[in-house]
Structure formats: C-alpha cells, structure tokens
Design a protein around this nucleic acid. Sequence first.
DNA 1: CACTTGACCTGTCCGC
DNA 2: TGCGGACAGGTCAAGT
Length: 288
Amino acid sequence: MPELPEVETVRIGLESLIPKKKIKDVTYDWDKSFPNSKNDVDTFMVNASVQRVRRRAKVLLIDLDTSCTLMVHLKMTGQLVFVGEQRFGAGHPNDSLVSSLPDKSTRVTIAFDDGSTLYFNDQRKFGWMKLLPTQAVADEPFMKKVGPEPLDNAFSVAVFTDRIRRRNGTSIKAALLDQTVLAGVGNIYADESLWGAKIHPARIVGTLTNKELSELHRELIYVLKLSIEKGGSTDRNYVNAEGKKGSYIDFARVFRREGLHCLRCGAVIEKSKVAGRGTHTCPACQKP
DNA sequence: CACTTGACCTGTCCGC
DNA sequence: TGCGGACAGGTCAAGT
C-alpha cells in the first residue's frame, strides 16, 4: 500500500506522538509479522523509551533508548496507528478507525505506560516489523542495496538519469519501481509522474531522450511533494498515524481514473498492465 | 547477467 | 445469493 509519501506521512505523525513514551507491554499474533524472540522483546523493548522516528525508502525506523531500532515495512496493507490514552466513542467528532482497535488485522500491539497504544495492523500479512541493534540497520540487505532518496537535494537530474539508464533494456515503469534505482516510488507515483512527463510506461529506457528523463525527474519530485502535502493517497487501506485517510487520490491525474477524461487533452484514460502492475495512461498524451 | 514471473496473504468486487 | 476468478499501493526468490 504505502509508498514514500504515505510512509513519510506516518513518520511525521508518529514523530509528533510517540517520542519519550515508555513501552510497557508488547503482544503479537503472527510470527512472520514480528519474528523477534520473547527474550529480545523483554530485554530491549519492554521499559525502553522511544527516541525518534526516521524513514529510509518505504521503511520506518523507530529508535529506542536501548540502542535498538524497530524497523517497520508496511508493504501493501500495513498500518501503524496510535491511539491516545483517551478514546472517543462512535459518533464523536474525533472518532475514526481508532475506536475499534484492536481488530482482526492487528498483528502487533505496543502498549505505553501512559495508557496510549501503537497498533501495527496488516490485513494481508505481507508487512513486518523487527527489532535490531540500531547500528545493524545499515547492514540489512535491503538497506544496503536501496537507491537514493528522491527528495534529497543531492538527487539531481544527472543522478536520476545515470541511475535510470542502468536499466536500459526494461520499461521505464519497471525502472521507476526498482528500489535499487531510486527509493520510495510505487505504482501510484510511477503512473502519476509518467503522465506528467507525457511518457508511456512501457517505453524502453534506452529509447528515452535526456529531455524526457529530465521532465520525468521534475514530475516525480512534484507528485511526491504534493502527495506529502495532501497526507498521502488512500486508495484502499492506507491511514496515517492517527487513523485518518490521505487526500492525494482526489488530486491524482491518471491513477484509478480509467474511463474518465484526461485532464490535459480530454481523451479517455485507459488501464492496462505494464511491468506486471495495473497501469493508467492517457492514450493521446502518452504514446507507446 | 538482465529481466520477468510467481509467491507470500486476505478481502473485495465482478461476472455467470 | 452463491461461487470462481481476477485484482489490490511491495518485495524477494526462482525461472527464462
């Protein structure tokens, strides 16, 4: 589910909610969602306090004061939802998903000593969290191979072009989705940025001009920043750290707009499959 | 090696 | 309604 803007939105929310909170108790129902031993949890999590919440690519990093970090990947349907010590009932203005937690998608429950709780929910069980020494995070296989952050100042057109061209024989969409090329792009923002740059997702990287890649670089940064401003995209399951949906989907130009008119030229948006993923394009603006 | 496909899971939606 | 199949925002292992 969540791509860079959604994970960043969760990070911003958690960073304002959980630092300094002390963990009282941890429970979980599915080993693959949280593979650490009870001994790890008792030794390094229980009685530990949260220091800060970081993000790298689509991974959240919750640093504890035991020199350990909770590494979290939400994959397709994961949620990290914080519920304060005071709960609101159904119908209350502040009521939301949170009033019904935990529910059957709750995989891990982290209770803090002030009565508040952080829930890790994941319907499809693809997501995971794991506890490891903070200095070991960089040695994780994914962290070693993942590409640069697209919203860093250092992510220039030259860097983008150079890295994309490493996948010269594949489609531009597959290259954008490849986390070793650059970090954080998933299906929504691949389609959105390609529409913005008027490039068909199935175009082979080797056929793209530097001018086209320069446009794509600009569009990619634009849609990622816009989405963070809008609190991410809620297509199905995504919610932020307070259980609220994001609104980027209301601003989307092609994603999930099949059958509707292109906002630029009026042609009817089509849906197809590229790089094994549902793909949305304008047949007039984005020529194969 | 470069690239593509299937597997991991559950839930929902669509057509018969 | 009921049922089968396709599909869903990610990543990795196995296949060509």
